[in-house]
Design a protein around this nucleic acid. Structure first.
Lengths: 167, 167
DNA sequence: CGGAATCCGATATGATACTG
DNA sequence: CAGTATCATATCGGATTCCG
């Protein structure tokens, strides 16, 4: 990710609708790793990219402001991330040639359309964080149980069906 | 990511609506890196997790099938990813105790709700991959131009505003 | 077949120092 | 303030091997 994506991603077109991608079939998509969609996906689903886009909601933010809002990001990673997003046309960078340098970042129209989707991802997470926490606790409990006491008579730790026939 | 998330993430509640998260204010959310939301986000926004969830749309898939569909994933990463998703309660794993082992993976109801969101992310990418490709090309062109020939008289490579006053 | 465990290299990322 | 450059390394993740 560090270096520019100078590889040559095959532009694998979707086989479905003739238009401009946007297939309706949930199954019939690429998944080839050298595919452009995969590459883009890897980028926007990036830890920091996600946060940057989520935060740049209809407002400009300065470099330092972003850095302050995104707890834990290093100056370096924020820079790199912003460059990538700028390159992908998702974020617009504006430099004010003033004495103490000032740089603003904001979403481009394209970035704004993505923002909606990202936002829904964040919302989903907020909504279900409790369920996930519960699931984790349950999983860990089972895990510990079978590692520790182990070998209980009947109840298997994970879901197992009562064998029917081999493949 | 390798090890179980045995850290202690602060359960940082959203300040907004009293209910169960689902805040309406796009700004007032966590961003603290030790926050649970951030951790979950990092996981589901993971390169492989994303693909697994996207692929498991209303169907069971065996380990090998998944591996075949997700080009480029190693056995190890697929296993690790599936474990995490299972732990988070997003994927259900079913072991059939037959002679050649057979394991099926499918989304849980919770996972299904996430699938919708993930899917929209994939769709967005498919729809806009051309725009992004164009943006990249443009960016790289500018970049090369100013690195190479550089120093053109007027047109600056990046967006720069004509200075008004310092901060 | 599905997976666990180990080894081990690539690299993504943080910390630090320097610059305009 | 907003980077860039360099260095050190923690982590990710692939290849291999062994197992039920």
């Amino acid at each position: 990710m560090e270096e520019g994506t100078s590889k040559s991603p095959s532009h694998c077109e979707v086989t479905g609708t003739g238009a401009d991608g946007a297939d309706a079939d949930p199954f019939q998509w690429d998944t080839r790793e050298d595919c452009e969609v995969r590459q883009i996906l890897d980028r926007i689903a990036d830890k920091w990219s996600l946060l940057v886009i989520a935060l740049l909601d209809r407002r400009k933010l300065r470099f330092t402001e972003l850095r302050r809002e995104i707890d834990g990001v290093s100056q370096r990673m924020l820079t790199v991330t912003l460059r990538q997003l700028e390159r992908d046309g998702l974020v617009k960078r504006t430099v004010h040639p003033v004495v103490p340098p000032r740089v603003d970042y904001e979403l481009t129209p394209l970035g704004a359309t993505l923002h909606t989707t990202i936002r829904s991802l964040v919302t989903w997470t907020e909504r279900h964080q409790n369920e996930i926490a519960a699931a984790r606790a349950a999983y860990d409990a089972r895990e510990a149980a079978q590692t520790d006491g182990a070998a209980d008579t009947a109840g298997a730790a994970r879901s197992v069906e009562p064998a029917t026939a081999p493949v």
